[in-house]
Design a binder for these strands. Structure first.
Lengths: 158, 158
DNA sequence: TAATAATAGTCAGAAAAGGTCAAAACATCA
DNA sequence: TGATGTTTTGACCTTTTCTGACTATTATTA
């Protein structure tokens, strides 16, 4: 299975995060680009598509001399944090990638089952919602919120 | 009667699946098309007509650089009813009441859990889909169909 | 403190896959 | 043979990744 550069970089960063004590890692964008022999903006692409807040990460950067990129892993300590997620979601639209990242995270944290993941993924992240045309992302956002509300309610009831 | 190209491709993929250890193969659509000297969309035809959910397969694809087509052998969960339901569903629109009834039935027959019921009910039978306006019922139909397709898979039971 | 050097960010477009749809070609059967 | 169903093709579309030119910010140094 051929793996893209973006995925290689993603895996590398995740490995660094695992090795780190505090779930955060700091690096130089230019160094990483050198290491993978690509343009620096490729790193931004990876950060934007794989390390967004829905996926459970927080990015801090600084430009200028001795600038850096810091990637911080924000785990869901317990299901109460779902409420925070829900609040963050607001009534905002959500694109496919963000929804897919969120579902991956929920599965990883064992908040949803494999089957729930598969069902939701095909509902949110496939082509189905394209039917809603210009409202696709808005509808997806609303549906994701409904899912979270259900997960929260379920958690409270057992 | 000469064997069709579609059938040759089908057989080839099935042989690959037999040789694979985990019942899944990954390939490039363009490579396969080259190999059989046909247009790429012929591959889609084979996938759609021979490797659908009802036949016990699940297809995953990715576009863009290093894209792929993955064919996963799932077998069928032991519930013949579902396949019938799916066949009946077609690509037809479905109203709220019909969706709610179907969900109740699935819950009654213990095909879905209470939690799955609650999630799907809020997704399908609530107000969310009103956002799709005149396409509400069409979208609901498609979503119900996706749900059934997932339930039919037997590789997701935890 | 003003200039410079060192970082990182943005955005549009090219490249590399795969998807869709309808029409043409072919096959089958009453 | 005519109607109907299946297969094959090709023109056009969408998504994902990668690149590079240009922009913005910050630390350092003259």
């Amino acid at each position: 299975m051929a793996i893209t550069l973006a995925t290689q970089i993603e895996n590398y960063i995740k490995r660094l995060l695992e090795l780190s004590e505090d779930g955060s890692v700091e690096l130089r964008r230019a160094d990483l680009a050198d290491m993978f022999m690509c343009v620096p903006s490729q790193i931004n692409y990876v950060l934007n598509t794989r390390f967004g807040t829905e996926a459970g990460y927080f990015i801090e950067t600084r430009r200028g001399g001795s600038g850096y990129v810091r990637i911080i892993q924000t785990g869901l300590a317990d299901n109460a944090d779902l409420t925070v997620l829900l609040a963050q979601a607001g009534d905002k639209p959500m694109n496919r990638q963000a929804a897919a990242n969120l579902l991956t995270r929920l599965l990883g944290e064992e908040i949803i089952t494999k089957r729930e993941y598969a069902i939701c993924r095909s509902l949110f992240a496939g082509d189905a919602l394209k039917l809603a045309e210009d409202r696709e992302d808005l509808l997806r956002g609303r549906m994701v919120r409904l899912l979270l509300m259900n997960l929260i309610r379920d958690d409270l009831s057992d």
